[in-house]
C-alpha cells in the first residue's frame, strides 16, 4: 500500500532526475559534435579516456573543489554567527531578518556584474582606496592568485543569508528549557552553544551544506559574468567548461561526460560532508582508542 502512495513522487523524481541522467550517460558514450554533423556516433568510451587525459578538466575540477570548499566553509561559519544574532530577542530584529535576505534575493548575474565593477582596475572603489593609501594596484580581476578569492567573496556575500535562514529555523526548534536547565547546572553560554545548539543543529547544518555544495559545484553564472573563467583560466569551473563544450564548441558528447564526472565529484563531496558532520565523534573515538 505504501508503495502506491510513494508512486507519484517516485515517478516525478525519475522523470526529473533519472531521464536526464540516463540521457547524459548515453550521450557520454557517443561522439556528438559539429565534427559528426551533430549525429550521435558510438565511440566506445573515447570521451572518458579523453577526460582522464584532459589536464584542463583536472585543473577545473581542482578549481571547482577549491571554490566550493572555501565558499561553503566560510558561509557555514558566517551563517552560524548571523543565525545566532537573529535568534536573540532584541528590538529591530524583524527588520534585520528581512534585510539580511536581500543579497540572496538578488539575481546572481546582476550582483556579479556589480562585483566586476567593484573589483575593476583602475575604476573600481577597491582599487581607488588602495590607490588613495599609496599602495600599488592589486589588479584583482587580472591576477590569477587573487581572482578566485574575489569570486568566493561574491558567492559568500550572496548565499550566506540562505544558509543563515536554514540555521535560524533550526535554532527555533530547540526548546528553551534545555538552555535553562544547562544554565541552572552552571553551564556557560559558549558551552551551551557547543553542547546544545550545535549538536541539535546538525540535521539543518547537513541539509544546508548539501544544498550549498550542490550549488557551488555547479557554479556558472557568477563566474561567467565576473571573470568569464579568466585570467589564464584560473577561475574556470567544471560547469563553465561543460557549457563551453556544449554551446560554444558544439561538442555535446564531451560536455555530457564533463557534467557526469562533476556529478560523481559532487556525490563524493556530499558523502564527505556527511562523514564530517555526523561521524566526526566516531572517527575521533576510533582514532584515539
Amino acid at each position: 500500500m505504501i508503495i502506491l502512495f510513494l508512486l507519484p513522487a517516485g515517478i516525478l523524481i525519475l522523470l526529473v532526475f533519472g531521464v536526464p541522467l540516463i540521457r547524459y550517460s548515453w550521450l557520454s558514450m557517443h561522439a556528438a559534435s559539429v565534427v559528426t554533423g551533430l549525429d550521435n556516433i558510438p565511440n566506445g568510451g573515447a570521451n572518458w579516456i579523453r577526460l582522464l587525459n584532459d589536464m584542463r578538466f583536472w585543473k577545473d575540477a581542482w578549481q571547482t573543489v577549491r571554490f566550493a570548499s572555501f565558499s561553503v566553509s566560510l558561509e557555514v561559519f558566517l551563517a552560524i554567527l548571523i543565525a545566532l544574532l537573529l535568534h536573540q530577542k532584541w528590538k529591530g530584529r524583524g527588520i534585520l531578518r528581512s534585510i539580511s535576505l536581500l543579497p540572496w534575493a538578488l539575481p546572481t548575474t546582476v550582483m556579479a556584474l556589480g562585483w566586476r565593477w567593484i573589483f575593476n582596475t583602475p575604476y573600481g572603489p577597491i582599487e581607488k582606496i588602495i590607490n588613495f593609501m599609496g599602495l600599488n594596484p592589486l589588479n584583482i580581476l587580472s591576477n590569477p592568485k587573487l581572482t578566485w578569492l574575489s569570486t568566493v567573496l561574491g558567492d559568500v556575500w550572496k548565499t550566506t543569508p540562505f544558509l543563515a535562514l536554514i540555521l535560524l529555523a533550526g535554532l527555533q526548534t530547540i526548546p528553551d528549557d534545555l538552555y535553562e536547565a544547562f544554565r541552572l547546572e552552571g553551564g556557560k553560554p559558549f558551552q551551551a552553544f557547543l553542547k546544545i545548539s550545535l549538536p541539535l543543529l546538525k540535521p539543518y547544518l547537513f541539509l544546508g551544506v548539501i544544498f550549498r555544495l550542490a550549488q557551488a559545484f555547479g557554479v556558472f553564472d557568477l563566474i561567467q559574468v565576473m571573470t568569464g573563467g579568466g585570467p589564464a583560466g584560473s577561475t574556470e569551473s567544471l560547469a563553465l567548461y561543460a557549457y563551453l563544450n556544449a554551446m560554444r564548441f558544439l561538442d555535446f558528447g564531451y560536455s555530457a561526460t564533463i557534467m557526469l564526472a562533476s556529478f560523481i565529484l559532487l556525490v563524493c563531496a556530499c558523502a564527505l560532508s556527511w562523514v564530517l558532520i555526523y561521524q566526526s565523534k566516531n572517527i575521533y573515538r576510533v582514532y584515539n582508542s
Binding site: 587580472s142 591576477n143 590569477p144 579568466g230 585570467p231 589564464a232 583560466g233 563551453l244 560554444r248 564548441f249
Partner: peptide, 17 residues
C-alpha cells in the same frame, strides 16, 4: 571557438601568470 579558446588561455597565462 576551440582554437581561439586555446590561444586566449595561453596568452592570458603569459600576461597574468
Amino acid at each position: 571557438a576551440q582554437v581561439s579558446d586555446v590561444l586566449q588561455r595561453q596568452l592570458s597565462e603569459v600576461f597574468t601568470n
